[in-house]
C-alpha cells in the first residue's frame, strides 16, 4: 500500500498538460469490479488554466469475471504555439476541443489474502473528433481564424491493478493505445510549421502510445470520489516533438449502483 503511494503521489503532482491539440488522454477507468452485477457510473471534471473538460464513465459486470466499460470524454483547451505566416514566425493562440466515446470489454479477478487486489484486463475501441481554431495574430493583419479538425479512432488494451483498503481505493494501470487519425480538414494557413506537425501526425498514424494511470479514491458508500492521473509516457521518437507526453488530471465522482440496491 505504501509502495503504491510512493509511486503515485509524484505522478499526481505533475502539472496537468497545458493543453494538447493533437492528442490528450482521457482518464483511464480502473475497474474496481469484484463480482457479477456490480455497476458504477462516474462523472469527472478537469479544470485548469488551459483545460476544461468533463467525462462520463460507466462499468458493469453482467457475468462474473466479465466487465463492460463505456467512456465519454469532452475537453476544451487553449494554448499558444509557434507557427509562421508566410515566412514570419510568431506565437499564436489556439483554442480547441476534442471528444471521444469508447466502449470496452474485459475480464477481472479478485485476489490477495483478503481479496483486496483487483486485477483486470480490458480492451476497447472508440471514435473521436478534434477541432482546433488558431486565432488571428494582431501583429499580422493578414491573419484570420484558421481551423484544423480531424476524426480519429482509438483502440486500447489496459491491464490494471486495483486495491481496496477500508474506505480507500488505489488503482494503477497501463493503457496501450493506438490512435488512428482517419480524416480531417486542415487550413494550411495555420502556417507551414503547424501544417508540418499535423502532417507528421498523419504520417505516423496510427500512433502507438503507452499511458500510465493512477487513481486514488475515497469510498463513501455508495459514492466514490477519485483523483485520477493519466499520462502518456511513451511514443515513437519521431512524434515526440508533437508534445504528446502530457499528463491529464481529473476529479471524478462515482456512484456504485449496486450499493444503492443493498
Amino acid at each position: 500500500m505504501r509502495l503504491l503511494l510512493y509511486f503515485a503521489i509524484p505522478a499526481l503532482l505533475l502539472p496537468a498538460c497545458s493543453s494538447n491539440r493533437f492528442y490528450t488522454p482521457n482518464t483511464m477507468q480502473i475497474p474496481m469490479l469484484s463480482e457479477k452485477g456490480q455497476a458504477t457510473v462516474q462523472v469527472g471534471m478537469a479544470k485548469n488554466k488551459h483545460n476544461s473538460g468533463w467525462e462520463v464513465q460507466g462499468i458493469y459486470s453482467p457475468l462474473s469475471h466479465l466487465g463492460l466499460m463505456v467512456n465519454h470524454f469532452d475537453l476544451h483547451y487553449s494554448g499558444n504555439t509557434y507557427t509562421d505566416f508566410s515566412q514570419f514566425f510568431y506565437e499564436t493562440e489556439y483554442k480547441g476541443k476534442t471528444r471521444l466515446t469508447e466502449g470496452a470489454v474485459g475480464g477481472y479477478l479478485q485476489t490477495g489474502p483478503q481479496k483486496e487486489y483487483l486485477i483486470s484486463l480490458f480492451g476497447g475501441y472508440g471514435k473521436g473528433r478534434t477541432e482546433n481554431r488558431y486565432l488571428p495574430q494582431p501583429d499580422f493583419p493578414g491573419t484570420e481564424t484558421y481551423n484544423s479538425s480531424w476524426n480519429y479512432q482509438r483502440w486500447f488494451i489496459q491491464p490494471a491493478l486495483g486495491m481496496k483498503y477500508r474506505r480507500f481505493q488505489v488503482g494503477t494501470g497501463l493503457r496501450f493505445v493506438w490512435v488512428d487519425y482517419l480524416n480531417g480538414d486542415i487550413n494550411s494557413r495555420v502556417g507551414q510549421t503547424e501544417t508540418d506537425r499535423i502532417a507528421l501526425l498523419e504520417e505516423n498514424s496510427p500512433l502507438a502510445l503507452t499511458e500510465i494511470a493512477w487513481s486514488f479514491s475515497w469510498h463513501l458508500r455508495p459514492v466514490v470520489i477519485s483523483l485520477n492521473s493519466t499520462a502518456v509516457v511513451r511514443g515513437k521518437n519521431n512524434i515526440r516533438e508533437l508534445n504528446l507526453a502530457s499528463n491529464f488530471v481529473s476529479l471524478t465522482v462515482g456512484l456504485n449502483l449496486h450499493e444503492l440496491r443493498k
Binding site: 480538414d185 486542415i186 499535423i198 498523419e202 496510427p206
Partner: peptide, 25 residues
C-alpha cells in the same frame, strides 16, 4: 473468449490505414 477478443483488437489496431487529411489554403 476474452483472449479472442483481445487478439482481434490487437490485429485491428495494428492495421495501417491511410489517413485522409485534406489540406486546403
Amino acid at each position: 473468449l476474452a483472449c479472442l477478443f483481445l487478439g482481434v483488437l490487437i490485429l485491428a489496431a495494428a492495421c495501417k490505414r491511410d489517413s485522409d487529411f485534406n489540406y486546403y489554403y
